[in-house]
Design a protein around this nucleic acid. Structure first.
Lengths: 119, 119
DNA sequence: CAGAATCCGCCAAGATACTG
DNA sequence: CAGTATCTTGGCGGATTCTG
């Protein structure tokens, strides 16, 4: 278990939701699955440049336990596992929509105001 | 500087926003200021049970730098500082609305399904 | 291909004490 | 009252190696 052992008493709805999306790659996983519908482990890894296999599987497991995504295992010779959002995952992604737009505007604002990424 | 030195290249809008709200108490500070309009340091501290002064001031400073809130200092005999959301802060709070509702439903669901907070 | 297991660095966050 | 300064630590996340 990593950060998933909170499920604590929540002050308000926000941190109940944050408890589920906090984690460096979770929102990106959500975004990836929402766009592509279904993705394999390797596809996700390639789609998230810089993620380690450990963090990817860890986040995937936590999100599965949280009922956000479904994990389908195909018992074939080359192992194959597919991940897809559940209804809960899709609803979370929709709830994240306005926040994404806000962040988008913010990013554009930062770029315009002369705070370009140093590298 | 703590977590504020990212402002990196963002993959999508979500993590641009997450970069600003991530931090154990930020969403709660936002919620507190949105509800009360204006709050003093001590009021915020009392409103956020368990927060340390260090983390509170640290988060407040970062949110101020991010243009989310305004800090008004009154040079009086007992020092007095008031915090209030800026237009950006309010818009962020609005963008957080749907996520808050989602988390609210999730919390109710958890409570109903028999995952009551242990403590 | 899709993980599991292990070791480790680093930084967010906690605790404590001091100050204008 | 509203911070600041310093020390410490828990655990998130990275890198590497091994397996079904």
């Amino acid at each position: 278990m990593a950060s998933s052992d909170r499920r604590g008493p929540y002050i308000c709805g926000i941190d109940a939701a944050m408890d589920v999306v906090s984690g460096k790659w979770k929102s990106l996983i959500l975004w990836e699955l929402a766009n592509y519908g279904t993705r394999r482990f390797g596809e996700l890894k390639r789609g998230l440049p810089g993620v380690s296999e450990k963090m990817l599987i860890q986040h995937l497991r936590e999100m599965e336990q949280d009922g956000l995504l479904h994990r389908e295992v195909y018992r074939e010779v080359p192992p194959k596992v597919e991940y897809a959002l559940t209804e809960h995952g899709r609803s979370l992604n929709e709830a994240l929509g306005p926040l994404g737009e806000w962040g988008q505007r913010r990013a554009e604002r930062l770029a315009a105001e002369g705070t370009p990424p140093p590298a």
